[in-house]
Design a protein around this nucleic acid. Structure first.
Lengths: 213, 213
DNA sequence: GTTTGTGAAGGATTTCACAGCA
DNA sequence: TGCTGTGAAATCCTTCACAAAC
């Protein structure tokens, strides 16, 4: 099943599987840094609190990465999964909204080491336009479509108040963005070919309280 | 199936269903604020980009909330779902880690209006202990168990660097915490009876890049 | 001996489709 | 007529269990 030789895209990979691959990448990266060379699906399962069978099945959608009797080469598997996910290159992102949250996002040091570069920042408030935040000059939202083109921006990050979020998302979609990270507490309307992931700690807390006591 | 009359806990509700309930609460709250009285599963489905059948099936785990031919009373359904999730009361939380991220968490204005009160803040660095952040006096981590007891803290929020996170989570678990919101980029080891939800924007981005182009 | 990769089985979740009720 | 609530069907996902490979 490819990844060996041809670069054919794999069909029919369940979305849940795609969402687990970054977990594998994360734990493999940690272990390769600590000098671990080889790891088994059993060990990965313990680390991630899942069954070894699930890990092997997930990987089997993309190819054969291990050696029977041994396990997986940590560095090799990490590299292959990064390639599958498109993490073997870097991605440009734009943040919309330069309030409290947007400033926290652009100054968050976790994106760049993973290859996500925030290369543009947008705001509606004229007071903020022209200011510099974390080395980025804040632009008017009307400049968004040109910036997306010129800077090959593929990811939009929404950090505006909830009542502006749908409109901003519409503008991102109109500008050709197909991947959106949404910090606003709403479920936006988007076309099928746009992928939206929400970051909402309140939602996470609200589903935890069900289990308390 | 209860919620009418008795307060028997519902058995066997799939976890995915529990995680969707806050989405319903969120959209119902928005619509009740806008003065919408009645809503159908079809309308909810459009708003949340899911099938009406799924919404009805999810709700059916807990009771019968609608009227045939009409739909659901927005305010009533919202109230019932909040009660089911335990959102009809407030919850005390403690944050561990007062670096950049922890400060952002304690000063985030989205928790308190939803009934999540951050009532204690902890740090390992002696330099920070005793300082005040967003009205909270920063405490030593050794004070955690007593604070959890005295202030009925039920939720722990982890905002420490990744290399300290597992240790902090162990301390929270030892202190009796069973619900953890984890901002550190790792999959922690925890006992079965502890619920952990991770907030990691990088992980979200890493699963989106698979779909780009 | 050990561990992978994978069809087949089993289990869980979603969707269908319609009876029942307002 | 319009929409809910729900068994049954369909689909999706996970786990099993073992042949093959080292």
């Amino acid at each position: 099943m490819s990844t060996n030789g041809t670069n054919a895209p794999e069909p029919n990979v369940p979305e849940v599987v795609i969402q687990r691959l970054p977990l594998y990448v994360r734990v493999l990266t940690q272990h390769s840094r600590r000098g671990v060379d080889v790891i088994s699906s059993e060990q990965l399962g313990k680390l991630l609190q899942m069954t070894p069978a699930q890990i092997r099945k997930d990987l089997s959608y993309f190819g054969r990465f291990g050696r029977q009797g041994q396990g997986y080469q940590v560095a090799d598997l990490e590299a292959q999964l990064r390639e599958i996910l498109g993490l073997d290159r870097s991605w440009n992102a734009a943040v919309v909204g330069m309030g409290r949250l947007g400033r926290a996002v652009v100054s968050y040091p976790g994106f760049e080491p993973e290859g996500f570069n925030i290369v543009a920042a947008f705001e509606a408030d004229p007071e903020l336009i022209g200011q510099t935040v974390s080395g980025l000059s804040v632009q008017a939202i009307s400049d968004l479509p040109i910036a997306v083109q010129r800077q090959s921006i593929k990811i939009g990050i929404v950090a505006v108040p909830v009542d502006h979020a749908q409109h901003v998302i519409d503008l991102l979609v109109d500008a050709g963005i197909k991947s959106i990270l949404n910090y606003a507490p709403l479920s936006p309307q988007t076309p099928d070919d746009v992928v939206v992931r929400g970051i909402d700690p309140v939602l996470s807390l609200q589903s935890m309280t069900y289990y308390i006591d």
